[in-house]
């Protein structure tokens, strides 16, 4: 059992930030800042000190080789583990949601009940849960599948359900750990568009970890490249494509050249190892 690690690392700064960064729905979006955040597990350095600022409502993508500490970084932001050094600045009341690569559904619950799970854990009243889950399921195209069980869903549908479960909570920030790595390419393109739409319409602040450079550039406002273990940030790219992105963007010269630049940086990080 995972001990419930208190979110103390969100620190005093967090309390101050709380006053100035009101929660989404009551106005502004939540921004996240990491300064000098590092993590070691006993003698393994999982993450070298990292500085990052994720503007409220923006989308950050992190790419990097396996084992460079991407999941560790997300867990630190989620408050699941404490950093070994540095500070995470996040409004104290900010609500986060996590989406894992394996959809992490409860196989004994039907789609509707799965979509309600995290709201249930957060003690949101039943009537409200039902309503929000319905809405979120409709948003990801799972309307009419409420009574199905996870084993009756395709990989893409499971991931949609996982997204709906997260979004139904109306989170201030959304952490995505390689959520589309296990779905087929066609479904992946489609899910990217849906994810983009969900993030834009909700104004959530999103952090995505991915192996896929094209996915990073297509979705993010900012792409961060990490080096092989021990992970550190070696490059940052601003993605200038704005809020309205259509599938055609993928074949535009600007998109292709930016993706190539990110790929080159990623290769450089691997060679360093």
């Amino acid at each position: 059992m995972m001990p419930g690690i208190p979110l103390q690392e969100r620190g005093e700064k967090a309390a101050a930030a709380a006053a100035s960064a009101p929660r989404r729905g009551r106005g502004g979006a939540v921004s996240i800042a990491l300064s000098g955040v590092s993590k070691r597990f006993d003698d393994i350095v999982a993450l070298e000190p990292v500085d990052l600022t994720i503007k409220g409502g923006s989308f950050l993508a992190i790419v990097g080789p396996s084992g460079c500490g991407k999941s560790t970084l997300l867990r630190i932001i989620a408050g699941l583990i404490a950093p070994s050094s540095g500070a995470l600045t996040l409004p104290g009341h900010a609500v986060g949601a996590f989406v894992f690569q394996e959809a992490a559904l409860l196989p004994w619950r039907n789609v509707q009940a799965n979509a309600e799970l995290v709201m249930e854990l957060e003690n949101i009243p039943k009537a409200e849960r039902v309503k929000r889950a319905r809405h979120a399921l409709a948003q990801v195209g799972l309307e009419g599948f409420e009574r199905r069980y996870p084993h009756q869903l395709s990989g893409g549908m499971k991931m949609r359900l996982s997204l709906a479960r997260a979004m139904a909570l109306r989170p201030d920030f959304l952490l995505l750990d390689e959520p589309l790595a296990a779905v087929d390419e066609l479904t992946r393109d489609q899910l990217q568009d849906e994810l983009l739409a969900l993030c834009r319409s909700s104004g959530v602040t999103a952090v995505l970890v991915t192996h896929n450079v094209y996915e990073a550039v297509y979705l993010a406002d900012q792409v961060v490249v990490m080096s092989a273990r021990p992970g550190r940030v070696i490059d940052r790219f601003d993605v200038p494509f704005g809020d309205d992105r259509a599938p055609e963007l993928r074949s535009s010269p600007e998109f292709v050249s930016l993706a190539a630049a990110v790929s080159a940086s990623l290769r450089k990080g691997r060679v360093d190892d």
């Binding site: 059992m1 995972m2 001990p3 419930g4 690690i5 867990r75 989620a78 408050g79 699941l80 986060g96 996590f98 894992f100 394996e102 992490a104 409860l106 799970l117 995290v118 854990l121 957060e122």
Partner: peptide, 18 residues
């Protein structure tokens, strides 16, 4: 699954709830 255990922990579910 460890993902689910983490999901429960992230949403502050206690031992009994988990």
């Amino acid at each position: 699954s460890s993902s689910l255990v983490e999901l429960f922990a992230m949403h502050k579910a206690g031992r009994l709830t988990a």
